[in-house]
Structures are given as structure tokens and as C-alpha cells.
Nucleic acid binder design. Structure first.
Length: 284
DNA sequence: AAAGGCACCAACCGCACGTGC
DNA sequence: TGCACGTGCGGTTGGTGCCTT
């Protein structure tokens, strides 16, 4: 049995929103706040489905939205974040205050893609276009035959160890993948002196330039829950798993799985001008 | 001036995830 | 454990305005 539709399609308006509808929605949210989108249209007297109301609010009516053109710094930040996160528009939007995922997605498809092409960079892989053509793909089982993957120039994409983000993965898996990426980088830094192999050599497409637009983290939060995700083997437990989401400034975003409980329960003690973070019982 | 092409962007759609029961 | 529901996300579509011919 399929899911019930989110609304009665026969009795809902579609298409562009009128000024009156906007005002109704704004007034209702001002009075009652966001939430329970399904019941909102009826309560607000709107002939729209809840999803439509949510989208209209988030993408257009929210008061904290920044309108207007993207500036050069935002362009570069989007490009860098996309190289790290792929088409995770909501994650990228979380790093750009006042911008929505939809706005960034549209901007990417209309402006940045072209910009990267003009620079000779493949926007999907962030590698030079000629390397997309010349690189010899390693054979790799392609479990993800999802039609969502619209990348037809897939040679470099298949090679891309880092950003072959399976659309079926859960958010936690994705976050843990990001953390693994982070640790690959850290471990390579540790072992580079002995092996002489750099991260860039092992993962040429790995762009972990984490300095991009990072917020100043005075007390970097080491997420215990992220450590749990990260540490498959017990001997790694002594390693500090730095939550990449927190490092990227996503600690307030949904992507950060360590967000609420970790902050609420963590005990912080200054020691040698450093802070130690203790796992809460919930984390174990 | 009209027609066609193109770019832009708001909105829609389907699916996946998280949560409560 | 499984189901239903609410919500969020990413891909796609369609309307509109501008530009070119």
C-alpha cells in the first residue's frame, strides 16, 4: 500500500503564490511559529498543501533570507563546499547564512557550473576537464545504479573515492563518511613522514582544504557521538575524532549528529589551557 | 514587431529519513 | 519490530522575462 498523499490535490491551489496567500502564511507563522506543516494550511485558511507552505516559507518568505546577487566570496565558498560535500545543497546552505538550498542549487546549475566549465574544471568532480577524458577508471562495482545519478561523464566520478555519496545512505552514514575522510587526512598526516605518501597522492581528488571559510572555533567541540561513529576498532578510541560537521561550523545544522545531547550533557574542564570533553552516558 | 531561443528561478514531485505508537 | 505520519532533501519542471534574429 502506498503512502497517503500529503494533501487533497483536488482542493489545493498550485503554481505561483499570490500576495494574499503570502500574507496569510506570514501572519500565521508569526502567531504560531513554524511546525506541523500538514495542518498549517487549514489552520491558516490556505488552499495549499503543507509541503508547498513549508517551501514557500523556507525559500521565499523567511525574514532572515538574504536577497540579491551572490558575491564572489559566496561563489568560491559554494565551489569549495561542493567539492567537499557534493550535491548536498542543504549542507552547503547551512554555511551560507540567508541563502537557501534551493537558491544555491539554482545558482549552481545556472552560474557556477558554467563558471567552472570556463575554468576547465568539471563541476561534478572538481577535476580538470581533460583529466575526466584521459583518466582511466578503476574497475568498481557500481551498486548504486540509481537513476538519480545523472552524471553521464562518469569516468572521473567513478574514480572519486570521496564523493561517491550513495543516495541511499542515511545521514549518519554520510556524516561518518565525512569523518572518515577527515581521519584519512589526519592519519595520512601522521604517517606521511614514514611512508612519504601524501594524501593528495593517495586521493588526488580529495580536497580537504578545511580552512575554507571556517568559523573561528575557539573551543573546537570534539563530539563523543562522532567518535562513536568514527571508531570502529577499540584501539582508535584514544584518537580524537573531530566532528567534521562541527569543524565546518555545522554544529547547529541537522547534519551534525552530535548536536543536541552532546552539548547538553558534556562536562568541560579547563586543563592546561585546553578543554577536555567527556562522553555523556547517552553516548555510550 | 514578432517569433524563437535562452536563462533564471519558484514551485512541484517523489523518495528517504526520523519519530512515535 | 513494523507501520504510519510528518518532514526534509534533491532532482526536475514550467512559467516568465530578456535577448537575438
Amino acid at each position: 500500500m502506498g503512502r497517503s498523499p500529503c494533501c487533497e490535490k483536488e482542493h489545493t491551489n498550485k503554481g505561483a503564490w499570490t500576495k494574499e496567500e503570502d500574507e496569510r502564511l506570514i501572519n500565521y507563522i508569526k502567531l504560531h511559529g513554524e511546525g506541523c506543516w500538514r495542518s498549517l494550511p487549514k489552520a491558516a485558511g490556505l488552499l495549499r498543501c503543507g509541503k508547498s507552505c513549508r517551501l514557500r516559507w523556507i525559500n521565499y518568505l523567511r525574514p532572515d533570507l538574504k536577497r540579491g546577487n551572490f558575491i564572489e566570496e559566496e561563489d568560491e565558498l559554494i565551489i569549495n563546499l561542493h567539492s567537499l560535500l557534493g550535491n548536498k545543497w542543504s549542507l552547503i546552505a547551512a554555511r551560507l547564512p540567508g541563502r537557501t538550498d534551493n537558491e544555491i542549487k539554482n545558482y549552481w546549475n545556472t552560474h557556477i557550473k558554467r563558471k567552472l566549465y570556463s575554468r576547465g574544471i568539471d563541476p561534478q568532480t572538481h577535476r580538470p576537464l581533460n583529466s575526466v577524458i584521459t583518466s582511466t577508471p578503476k574497475k568498481r562495482s557500481n551498486n548504486n545504479s540509481s537513476s538519480n545519478n545523472t552524471n553521464t561523464t562518469s569516468t572521473a566520478a567513478n574514480d572519486n573515492v570521496v564523493f561517491q555519496i550513495n543516495m541511499q545512505k542515511t545521514k549518519k552514514q554520510e556524516v561518518s563518511e565525512l569523518i572518515v575522510m577527515s581521519n584519512i587526512n589526519n592519519e595520512n598526516e601522521d604517517s606521511n613522514s614514514s611512508s612519504g605518501v601524501t594524501t593528495e597522492e593517495v586521493y588526488p581528488e580529495l580536497n580537504l582544504e578545511l580552512s575554507i571559510g571556517l568559523p573561528a572555533q575557539q573551543n573546537p567541540i570534539i563530539s563523543s557521538s562522532c567518535i562513536k561513529v568514527n571508531d570502529e576498532s577499540s584501539n582508535q578510541k584514544k584518537k580524537t575524532g573531530v566532528c567534521l560537521c562541527c569543524n565546518l561550523g555545522f554544529q547547529n545544522s541537522q547534519a551534525c549528529s552530535c548536536k543536541p545531547r552532546a552539548i547538553a550533557t558534556r562536562i568541560i574542564t579547563p586543563q592546561n589551557n585546553l578543554y577536555r570533553y567527556y562522553s555523556s552516558p547517552l553516548d555510550s
